[in-house]
C-alpha cells in the first residue's frame, strides 16, 4: 500500500485524501454522499453558525485534481473518466435517463465526442440506460465498462 501511494503522492504533490480516494475508487449509486453523513444535526448547524460556513470536512491540502491529467488511450483506462463517473454516479444516472444534462456534456467532452454528435450520443445513452446501469448495485467501474461497450458499438 505504502509503495503504491508513494509515486502517487509525488505526482500529486500532496499526501492528502489519497487513502480516501482509494477507498472510494469503485463505488455504487448513492455512496458518494455517505462521507458527508452525520453533519446535519441541529447542534452542528448552530456550531457552524459561529464558525462560518467555510468550515467543513473536505480536502484540506492541495491536490492537483484534474491538473496534470494525462491524455487518455481509451474510455476504460481513462483516469479522468473513471474519477468523473465515480464522483457523479447518481447525477450521471439521472441525466442518462433524462437523455440530457451537464454531466452527459462533460462525459462527451472527456471522451471527445464531436459537437455535432452530442445529441445522438445522449440519446444513445438514454436508449441503453438499462445496459449501462445494469443493476441496482452496479459499481462505477462497471458503469465505465458498460459505457465503453455502448459507445464503442455505436
Amino acid at each position: 500500500m505504502r509503495k503504491l501511494l508513494l509515486p502517487v503522492a509525488a505526482l500529486v504533490a500532496s499526501v492528502s485524501l489519497h487513502a480516501a480516494d482509494d477507498l472510494r475508487s469503485n463505488v455504487g449509486i448513492g455512496v458518494g454522499t455517505m462521507i458527508f453523513e452525520g453533519q446535519s444535526g441541529l447542534l452542528s448547524q448552530i456550531c457552524a453558525a459561529t464558525t462560518n460556513g467555510c468550515f467543513g470536512n473536505q480536502t484540506f491540502a492541495i491536490t492537483t485534481g484534474t491538473l496534470g491529467a494525462k491524455p487518455w488511450t481509451g474510455i476504460v483506462s481513462n483516469g479522468e473518466v473513471q474519477s468523473f463517473v465515480r464522483d457523479n454516479m447518481d447525477q450521471l444516472a439521472r441525466e442518462m435517463a433524462a437523455g440530457q444534462g451537464e454531466s452527459i456534456e462533460t462525459l462527451a467532452e472527456l471522451i471527445a465526442v464531436p459537437a455535432a454528435e452530442r445529441a445522438t450520443f445522449a440519446q444513445n445513452l438514454q436508449a441503453h440506460f438499462g445496459q449501462i446501469y445494469a443493476s441496482p448495485t452496479v459499481t462505477s467501474t462497471e458503469v465505465v465498462e458498460n459505457l465503453a461497450k455502448v459507445v464503442e458499438k455505436a
Partner: peptide, 18 residues
C-alpha cells in the same frame, strides 16, 4: 487554514445536493 484544489463537481455534490 489551507488552500485546496478539487474538481468543482465534488463541491457541487456537497453544496447543491447534500
Amino acid at each position: 487554514g489551507h488552500f485546496s484544489l478539487m474538481p468543482y463537481w465534488q463541491k457541487l455534490n456537497e453544496y447543491s445536493d447534500l
